[in-house]
């Protein structure tokens, strides 16, 4: 009898002290899943525009309800992270020697993502206050 290797791959994934690449991947994957589910919702809500004005306006709370803002912001962050981190992966995939700078690149991604997210969240807050 041997201990089952598959037992707890989630705990392996969370407990492994991998570098920035490890955490980037977890975030990239979670972000991607989140965005994909939102995308399905988003297509549905825009589809309502085609159904009728009233049907769409039923759903406008998604964009107007202040309590949902944190969700939107999380999504905004997720999209920026997934996009920029994706660009990092593309750069590395096609110019493999860039792998040597993976830590610097991953850090750059974080800097850009934070700047973009702070900017948009700031814009939203300003809009809400106005």
């Amino acid at each position: 009898m041997s201990a089952n290797p598959k037992k707890g791959f989630v705990s392996s994934t969370l407990s492994y002290k991998g570098g920035i690449g490890h955490w980037s991947w977890i975030l990239h994957r979670l972000g991607g899943l989140g965005i994909a589910f939102f995308l399905i919702l988003h297509i549905l809500d825009i589809f309502m525009v085609g159904v009728s004005r009233a049907a769409f306006e039923e759903l406008l709370f998604i964009y107007h309800e202040p309590l949902l803002r944190p969700v939107i912001w999380a999504l905004v962050f997720g999209v920026f992270y997934h996009a920029l981190n994706g660009l990092r992966i593309i750069i590395q995939d096609f110019w493999p020697h860039m792998f040597r700078y993976q830590k610097q690149l991953a850090t750059t991604v974080w800097v850009i993502v934070i700047v973009l997210t702070v900017f948009l969240v700031g814009v939203d807050i300003a809009g809400m206050l106005a």
């Binding site: 492994y16 991998g18 570098g19 920035i20 690449g21 490890h22 980037s24 991947w25 994957r29 992966i89 590395q92 995939d93 493999p96 020697h97 792998f99 040597r100 993976q102």
Partner: peptide
């Protein structure tokens, strides 16, 4: 391969594994 880099970081022979996979 999801370009995670754990392999490169773990390699005791300092092989740039992720880079080799990308090649």
């Amino acid at each position: 391969c999801r370009t995670i880099f754990n392999c490169t970081n773990a390699c005791p022979r300092e092989i740039k594994v992720t880079e080799a996979i990308a090649e």
